[in-house]
Lab assay of single mutants.
Amino acid sequence: DATRCSICQKTGEVLHEVSNGSVVHRLCSDSCFSKFRANK
């Protein structure tokens, strides 16, 4: 199964994995990581 970025939905390489309870968010770049943090 292809890994997909939680923010931009791009498949491919994942730079960050953030687990939040039972959910793991995968983020492909620092910019997506920043957006993820801002959205929480």
Rank of each mutant, 00 (worst) to 15 (best):
D1A: 08
D1Q: 06
D1E: 15
D1P: 05
D1L: 10
D1C: 14
D1R: 08
A2P: 06
A2K: 15
A2Q: 15
A2H: 13
A2I: 15
A2Y: 04
T3R: 11
T3Q: 15
T3P: 02
T3D: 10
R4T: 09
R4D: 12
R4E: 07
R4K: 06
C5K: 01
C5Y: 00
C5G: 00
C5S: 00
C5D: 01
S6P: 12
S6A: 14
S6V: 03
S6C: 02
S6M: 04
I7N: 15
I7D: 04
I7T: 07
I7F: 09
C8S: 00
C8L: 01
C8W: 00
C8F: 01
Q9D: 05
Q9T: 07
Q9E: 13
Q9H: 07
Q9R: 05
Q9G: 08
K10E: 10
K10S: 06
K10M: 06
K10Q: 07
K10I: 03
K10T: 05
T11V: 03
T11I: 07
T11A: 05
T11S: 05
T11E: 09
G12D: 05
G12I: 07
G12V: 09
G12R: 08
G12T: 10
E13Q: 11
V14I: 11
V14W: 02
V14A: 08
V14Y: 03
V14C: 03
V14S: 08
V14T: 11
V14F: 10
V14L: 04
L15V: 11
L15D: 06
L15K: 14
L15I: 12
L15W: 07
L15C: 11
H16Y: 03
H16S: 05
H16K: 08
E17L: 01
E17D: 06
E17S: 08
E17H: 05
E17T: 10
E17Y: 00
E17A: 01
V18K: 06
V18R: 04
V18A: 08
S19V: 09
S19D: 10
S19Y: 04
S19G: 09
N20D: 15
N20F: 03
N20A: 10
G21L: 05
G21D: 12
G21K: 07
S22E: 12
S22I: 08
S22Q: 12
S22N: 13
S22M: 12
S22G: 12
V23Q: 15
V24W: 05
V24E: 11
V24Y: 09
V24I: 10
H25D: 10
H25F: 06
H25N: 11
H25Y: 04
H25W: 06
R26N: 07
R26K: 12
R26W: 07
R26T: 11
R26L: 07
L27C: 13
L27Y: 11
L27S: 03
L27D: 02
L27T: 10
L27N: 02
L27H: 04
L27F: 12
L27K: 05
C28F: 00
C28R: 00
C28P: 02
S29H: 01
S29L: 01
S29F: 00
D30K: 09
D30R: 06
D30Y: 00
D30P: 04
D30T: 07
S31Q: 13
S31W: 07
S31R: 13
S31N: 10
S31L: 11
S31C: 08
S31I: 13
C32D: 05
C32G: 02
C32S: 02
F33Q: 15
F33P: 08
F33R: 14
F33C: 09
S34H: 06
S34I: 09
S34W: 08
S34F: 08
K35Y: 08
K35G: 10
K35R: 14
K35N: 13
K35H: 11
K35S: 12
F36K: 03
F36S: 08
F36Y: 06
F36A: 13
F36M: 05
F36D: 10
R37F: 03
R37G: 14
R37H: 14
R37Y: 05
R37L: 05
A38F: 06
A38D: 09
A38Y: 04
A38T: 08
N39E: 14
N39Y: 07
N39L: 13
N39I: 12
K40L: 10
K40E: 13
K40D: 14
K40I: 12
K40H: 15
